[in-house]
Amino acid sequence: MLDDRARMEAAKKEKVEQILAEFQLQEEDLKKVMRRMQKEMDRGLRLETHEEASVKMLPTYVRSTPEGSEVGDFLSLDLGGTNFRVMLVKVGEGEEGQWSVKTKHQMYSIPEDAMTGTAEMLFDYISECISDFLDKHQMKHKKLPLGFTFSFPVRHEDIDKGILLNWTKGFKASGAEGNNVVGLLRDAIKRRGDFEMDVVAMVNDTVATMISCYYEDHQCEVGMIVGTGCNACYMEEMQNVELVEGDEGRMCVNTEWGAFGDSGELDEFLLEYDRLVDESSANPGQQLYEKLIGGKYMGELVRLVLLRLVDENLLFHGEASEQLRTRGAFETRFVSQVESDTGDRKQIYNILSTLGLRPSTTDCDIVRRACESVSTRAAHMCSAGLAGVINRMRESRSEDVMRITVGVDGSVYKLHPSFKERFHASVRRLTPSCEITFIESEEGSGRGAALVSAVACKKACMLGQ
């Protein structure tokens, strides 16, 4: 009897593995994704193909990295998701002549009506938060230079001027797309009239992360975010950046690689679950690469896999709870928690219980395998993109072996128990001629924006502006 049951459990697990095998990517698959990513990057950089390229390769006008001589107080704003952060950054000489960066910050959550109302409502709310922060720190009387981390696709015309191309991540505030974001912020500050600010720089969160990590390690020339969304930036040779005049030196390019796949480059790798996630998203047909990796989508992918296993009578005796059938019910943090389970399955059992399920031991094991399959594919897909960037940098610099540091931020990278190990191992397999160091950014977005502002202020002083 026991043997029969054991055989049935083994057969069930084997069927589960057959279904989950769809998520496995072979090294040849990853090399294919990497080569296609490089081709799209090239198209994004070139003037004649930029418009139709899915990977936009947006110039950021960040050319210099901090040298350690900029000092002063800077205000930093960070808008990239449902939370908005205001930070005071003091850049100065530390002990023994070292450079020191001290920060104080406060988080504000953005109400739904500000995210989806008008641009005026959104930026009025942001300036209200700045006003509140300055009151708390008794700094209303000071006109501070301000660095703005704005983590949406922007076409820069200068370091302090950028046109919002399109909202992502659930934002829909009308009247912002096609307009200068810094102008919208300046107008809102003017409307309030109770404080003055000098907006000197606007950067993407990947750029802010790279600059913040450069402060720790001067070989950091790539910034990457794996959180709600997924994106990367890197220092490109100016001669390859056709959208900006000049051939000397390097400029940081914001790849906006989340949109890779929007022209069909990933079609052969998309599964039924991916198509369902895409169809029910706020932007169907867009940001397809990001939807395979980002935390906004990972939990939902797992939920759809679990429903398939229920329908195949391989999980929960073929019956799903009402909660499990509800879109968004299986949160991405559950994926991390399930994979963090120590082996007694308590954590998995508790999560499934909150979803109205009474799982068996085998159910718990199957749910864990589903989570591992989805998150491992995410790590491997992400590795193909980064390997594409790094191999490109090595080739354009004609280096036999390139040493490089990548600064990384984002909740999936930082909080998932195995993502970074799987990701690092896969990147290294795909970049055999590179020695890569990964560092995690601390308060990256805010500190990085302030350091970019410090560079901009120093330049302005040198130019006598």
Rank of each mutant, 00 (worst) to 15 (best):
L2T: 09
A6W: 06
R7Q: 11
M8Q: 06
A10I: 13
K13T: 15
E17K: 04
E17V: 08
L20R: 00
L20I: 00
E22I: 12
Q24P: 02
Q24R: 14
Q24A: 11
L25Q: 05
L30D: 05
K32R: 07
M34V: 05
Q38K: 13
E40T: 05
M41T: 06
D42G: 11
R43H: 03
R43S: 11
G44H: 01
L45A: 02
R46L: 08
E48P: 07
E51C: 15
E51L: 08
E51V: 03
E52M: 10
A53S: 03
S54R: 05
K56I: 11
P59H: 06
Y61P: 07
Y61D: 12
S64H: 11
G68P: 15
E70M: 04
G72F: 03
F74N: 03
F74I: 01
F74C: 06
S76E: 10
L77M: 08
L79K: 07
G81Y: 06
T82R: 13
F84E: 09
F84Y: 05
V86F: 06
V89H: 06
V89E: 01
K90G: 10
V91F: 12
G92L: 10
E93R: 11
G94W: 11
Q98L: 07
Q98W: 06
W99N: 06
S100H: 10
V101P: 04
V101L: 15
K104C: 03
K104T: 13
Y108F: 15
P111R: 10
P111Q: 03
E112L: 08
E112N: 14
E112R: 07
A114L: 14
A114W: 13
M115S: 13
M115T: 09
M121K: 05
F123L: 02
F123D: 06
F123I: 05
D124I: 00
I126C: 08
S127I: 01
E128M: 14
E128V: 10
I130Q: 02
L134K: 03
L134A: 09
P145D: 04
P145T: 04
P145K: 14
F150D: 09
S151Q: 14
R155L: 10
E157G: 12
D158V: 10
K161V: 09
K161I: 07
I163W: 11
L164R: 11
L164I: 15
W167H: 15
T168I: 12
K169F: 09
F171T: 08
S174Y: 14
G175A: 07
V181L: 11
K190D: 06
R191M: 14
G193E: 13
G193A: 12
D194V: 09
F195A: 11
F195W: 14
E196Y: 08
V199S: 14
A201V: 11
M202Q: 08
M202W: 13
D205T: 05
V207Q: 14
A208G: 06
S212V: 03
Y214W: 13
E216T: 04
D217T: 08
H218W: 02
H218I: 08
Q219G: 08
C220G: 03
V222T: 01
V222R: 00
V222E: 02
G223T: 01
I225E: 06
I225D: 04
I225S: 11
G229W: 04
A232E: 00
C233S: 07
E237W: 06
M238S: 05
E242A: 04
E242Q: 04
L243G: 10
V244S: 06
E245T: 06
G246R: 04
E248T: 10
C252H: 00
V253M: 13
E256K: 05
E256I: 03
A259C: 14
A259R: 11
F260K: 01
D267P: 01
F269A: 02
F269K: 02
L270R: 08
E272H: 14
Y273N: 01
L276S: 12
L276K: 05
S281A: 05
S281T: 09
S281Q: 05
N283E: 09
P284E: 07
Q286P: 03
K291Y: 00
L292F: 12
G294C: 06
K296V: 12
Y297M: 14
Y297I: 01
M298S: 03
M298L: 15
M298W: 15
E300H: 01
V302Q: 00
R303A: 02
L307V: 10
R308A: 09
L309I: 04
D311P: 02
N313L: 09
L314M: 13
L315P: 01
F316E: 03
H317P: 07
G318I: 05
S321A: 15
S321W: 04
Q323K: 15
R325T: 13
R325H: 15
R327Q: 15
R327N: 13
F330A: 01
R333G: 09
S336K: 03
S336Y: 14
V338I: 07
V338K: 00
D341V: 05
D341I: 03
D341M: 08
D341R: 07
T342E: 13
T342R: 07
D344L: 04
K346S: 10
Q347N: 11
Q347S: 09
Q347K: 12
I348V: 10
I348A: 14
I348K: 01
N350R: 06
I351F: 04
R358S: 12
T362F: 04
D365S: 06
V367R: 00
V367E: 00
R368L: 12
R369H: 04
A370G: 04
A370F: 03
A370K: 00
S375A: 06
T376S: 11
T376I: 11
A378R: 03
A378K: 02
M381Y: 12
M381D: 00
A384K: 00
A384H: 00
G388L: 02
R394K: 04
R397I: 04
R397F: 06
V401E: 15
M402N: 08
R403A: 13
R403N: 07
T405I: 02
V406M: 01
G407N: 01
S411I: 04
S411C: 14
V412A: 07
Y413M: 09
Y413H: 02
K414E: 03
K414S: 04
L415P: 03
L415T: 10
H416T: 02
K420I: 02
K420R: 15
E421Y: 12
A425Q: 10
A425D: 10
S426G: 14
V427L: 11
R428M: 09
R429G: 13
T437S: 14
T437L: 08
F438L: 05
F438H: 00
E440D: 03
S441N: 06
E442V: 09
E443V: 10
G446Y: 10
A450Q: 09
V452P: 02
A454H: 09
A456R: 11
K458H: 07
A460H: 05
A460Y: 11
G464S: 12
